[in-house]
Write a protein that binds this DNA or RNA. Structure first.
Lengths: 211, 211
DNA sequence: ACCTGAACACCGTTCAAGT
DNA sequence: ACCTGAACACCGTTCAAGT
């Protein structure tokens, strides 16, 4: 099988283009991926891609689902639920981190096959712990909110960490150091304890109702 | 003072361009705003804008801060803290809702003057309730994560609500109706109770330590 | 000081034509 | 069936020139 780095001159299939797009995005970032650039990378005309993907959006959607699959964020089942949840959230965070350009796609694309797999794994686990189906769905959605928000803010802070801390410290008449420490952490680790605490309360309530 | 709808043929200042950009974005959406279109809207050359804003990004950054100011999301002080927090979060959610195109900006721009005002209001309120400064900052950041994530997912679901519910219901062998109900709610209302529960636990712990 | 017009180096996508 | 080349209708931004 030819790789994208040594493309054969024969015709390529959908999977080949998908893989090449994945590689190229890893190398140059998603916001720099253009149809013309991908074509050049494969030594092919830009229009060749359109035989396999109806539009750039369709291509990106496919890459995103592939990305989720390769991130492989579902933790081992033997972990206690709160660690399992924390690890899953951190895994998603890390996968998306630095790839802010994915975020508008998350907000505009349908749920893919591989994204669905993660969803059901999460819901299964929390139902196993005693949550009702609706509550498990709510918990899953909340975790996704936290991850997306954390990735978004992380990008802000990486570009202007010092500025934000400085401004806030001046305003509140406190030292900038604790703020810098806060902003220096992975953003996901800030909301996660609060989220787990909320989940614990809900699980306790569910246990009371059931038991 | 001339409005953007009846532009004078005299020179315009920075505030005028800013206001016009704000109006135009409200009308056509942020992703359709181009320098050429704004120029056409003002019956001016595209390059005129560059006298007042160094780049399109600088213009958008200014519009975003203006947007935050006009959203006016800080609730009345007499509300109990949990309602105050919930109202603030819902206000931000509603301001951003449907304007997904703002989200990549939130992730790439420095904090503006008006954004800072909301930040300090939130931190003040939670410190008043007994949280330490660092914890109040953490709570604020977590709320922002939730809002950004909720807005992002809301956009997804509005485009493919039925599809998501259907897929998930089939997978879990349950009726699609409760999932539809979940996805039909404002996404912010899903994570907010969990967040408030977590905050309550933290406030109780803080009270115990202090008292 | 502020604005214009033309130009540069890009985009995504269409369409007719090639093999 | 799959790919190419040229073209269309756009972008943000530069630069020299105008008033």
């Amino acid at each position: 099988m030819p790789t994208a780095s040594t493309p054969s001159k024969k015709y390529h299939n959908r999977a080949f283009y998908l893989n090449a797009a994945f590689e190229l995005i890893r190398d140059i970032g998603i916001d720099k991926l253009t149809m013309r650039r991908l074509a050049e990378y494969l030594d092919v005309s830009a229009m060749a891609i359109y035989k396999h993907f109806g539009s750039k959006d369709e291509l990106l959607k496919a890459v995103l689902d592939e990305f989720i699959a390769r991130a492989d964020v579902v933790p081992p089942a033997q972990l206690p639920w709160h660690e399992w949840v924390a690890q899953l959230a951190r895994g998603m965070f890390r996968a998306l981190q630095g790839e802010t350009a994915w975020l508008p796609l998350l907000g505009s694309f349908d749920i893919g096959e591989n994204a669905l797999r993660v969803t059901t794994a999460f819901i299964d686990r929390l139902m196993q712990e005693g949550l009702a189906f609706e509550q498990a769905v709510a918990a899953y959605l909340t975790m996704i909110h936290l991850v997306i928000g954390a990735v978004t803010l992380q990008a802000t802070f990486e570009k202007s960490m010092a500025a934000v801390a400085q401004t806030l410290a001046q305003e509140k008449q406190v030292s900038a150091r604790p703020i810098l420490a806060m902003v220096d952490r992975d953003q996901i680790d800030i909301g996660l304890p609060l989220f787990i605490a909320g989940l614990k309360a809900r699980l306790a309530a569910a246990g009371r109702t059931q038991g």
